[in-house]
Design a protein around this nucleic acid. Structure first.
Ligand code: MN
Ligand code: MN
Ligand code: ZN
Ligand code: ZN
Lengths: 136, 136
DNA sequence: ACCAGAGTGAGAATCGTTATCATGACTCCT
DNA sequence: AGGAGTCATGATAACGATTCTCACTCTGGT
């Protein structure tokens, strides 16, 4: 039922690139990153691989304010949320202890089913704040 | 400094369309809706108007899982969140009493500044559930 | 009525993402 | 090793949402 999912050097390269950085990256950023590093991989393959990883729950995906998808290999595989730096993508994994229950309750209270929730925090990390100061 | 913002029949039509429905709608949906209703408005104008309304805080914007922007004129103008039906866009305005404080705290704890948060709940409303049953 | 300038809209241009499809790589069998 | 069958890749075309252009049309104030 499930395709074998072969391990190719391309897929390995994409996975590697994700391991390395702790930041959320777009498909295109990863594509460039790989090109620069020498492990050129077709853009289409980058997208395909990311999608596969996302479907398998191996990478987290979130959307920028303007709709661009960002990917990150998180340390934790269980459900969690993020505090992401708007300018560099650096992210911290966080829990919303109360949020989980609250979401489910609010949902059923209003007669909705199959509730899912989106909870992401955005901010500017200390490092980016520092370099912004330097530039002013 | 701020342009006058003239009232044209197009802007009125878009605003009207938003008043009417209680559901989150995409720019294109609104465009069609207006065309059908007789008040044809150029797609570009629909986008421009929605953007202006959003900037002015008069409509709320949220992003679909696949990045499409949805707009809704909410009853409340203060900060709030939504429980949205995945299939019809119907939405309920909700508060995340604890969430607000939690978000700010988590942010500063990790050295992030200018914290913003995204909290949206998705589900299937009772009405859509009913019509889904009927179809099976 | 008149005019300066904001607003409009058809269509071109962007841009992220997905679909095609011919070519290449891998697996398994003989 | 040789070959069939299958999955994967990648250049490129296609898409879909959104934005940009720019010539033309209104609005609002005098
Ligand atoms: Mn959660
Ligand atoms: Mn909030
Ligand atoms: Zn940063
Ligand atoms: Zn519904």
């Amino acid at each position: 039922m499930n395709q074998p999912l072969r391990m190719t050097k391309q897929r390995a390269a994409v996975a590697e690139a994700l391991q390395v950085s702790d930041e959320f990256r777009s498909a295109q950023q990863l594509h460039e990153l790989l090109r620069d590093r020498g492990d050129a991989v077709g853009l289409a393959t980058v997208y395909r691989t990311l999608q596969a990883l996302a479907d398998g729950g191996d990478v987290d995906v979130l959307r920028t304010d303007d709709g661009e998808a960002l990917y990150r290999r998180c340390a934790r595989t269980e459900h969690h949320h993020h505090l992401v730096c708007r300018s560099c993508g650096r992210a911290v994994e966080i829990d919303g202890p109360t949020v989980e229950a609250w979401a489910a309750e609010v949902g059923s209270t209003h007669g909705f089913a199959d509730i899912e929730h989106t909870v992401e925090l955005w901010g500017t990390c200390a490092a980016c704040r520092a370099s912004a100061d330097r530039a002013s």
